[in-house]
Simulated assay, not measured.
Amino acid sequence: MPLIYRLLTEDDTSEFCHKVSLALSKGWVLYGNPTYVYDHANGVMRVGQAVTKDVEAAYSRDMKLGQQ
């Protein structure tokens, strides 16, 4: 079964938590630790979390990962 990968990013707000929670509710699995970085240009903290998911369909560059 093919494994697909996404990197979720957002400002460090509750919106990021909702984005990750939505992905988890759709069967995505956390991959590694979250990452944090200070965005000097915008003066905010940014956070990212990698997630993976086994899918039945063959991988295609055209697939919409968020809809899997």
Rank of each mutant, 00 (worst) to 15 (best):
65 L>S: 03
26 K>C: 07
45 M>W: 09
8 L>S: 03
2 P>I: 04
58 A>C: 13
37 V>A: 15
55 V>A: 04
45 M>N: 14
66 G>N: 12
4 I>W: 01
13 T>E: 08
39 D>R: 04
51 V>D: 00
6 R>F: 01
17 C>W: 00
23 A>Q: 03
48 G>N: 05
25 S>Q: 09
7 L>V: 15
29 V>F: 05
15 E>Y: 12
63 M>H: 04
7 L>K: 10
4 I>P: 01
56 E>K: 13
46 R>E: 09
53 K>R: 10
35 T>E: 12
14 S>Q: 12
35 T>I: 15
27 G>Y: 00
56 E>Y: 08
14 S>H: 10
59 Y>C: 08
17 C>K: 05
10 E>A: 10
55 V>G: 02
51 V>H: 00
21 S>N: 11
56 E>H: 11
27 G>D: 05
20 V>P: 00
2 P>E: 09
60 S>T: 14
3 L>D: 04
61 R>I: 14
50 A>I: 08
37 V>K: 13
25 S>Y: 01
18 H>V: 01
12 D>T: 08
12 D>W: 01
62 D>L: 09
40 H>L: 11
11 D>N: 15
27 G>L: 02
33 N>M: 10
50 A>P: 01
47 V>M: 06
29 V>N: 09
4 I>S: 05
67 Q>K: 11
17 C>Y: 05
43 G>C: 06
65 L>H: 04
53 K>S: 07
8 L>K: 02
16 F>T: 03
21 S>R: 05
49 Q>W: 00
22 L>Q: 09
56 E>P: 06
18 H>R: 12
15 E>G: 13
25 S>E: 06
55 V>P: 00
53 K>C: 06
66 G>P: 04
14 S>F: 11
10 E>M: 02
50 A>G: 08
63 M>V: 13
33 N>Y: 08
1 M>G: 13
5 Y>T: 15
47 V>P: 02
63 M>W: 01
56 E>G: 13
53 K>W: 00
44 V>Y: 08
52 T>N: 10
61 R>E: 15
36 Y>A: 14
61 R>Q: 15
18 H>E: 04
64 K>A: 11
58 A>H: 14
6 R>W: 01
48 G>R: 05
9 T>W: 00
12 D>F: 06
64 K>L: 11
19 K>Y: 02
51 V>N: 00
33 N>P: 01
57 A>P: 06
21 S>K: 03
27 G>E: 04
10 E>N: 13
9 T>Y: 02
33 N>C: 12
26 K>R: 13
44 V>H: 14
36 Y>K: 07
33 N>Q: 12
4 I>A: 05
29 V>Q: 12
9 T>E: 09
37 V>G: 13
54 D>V: 15
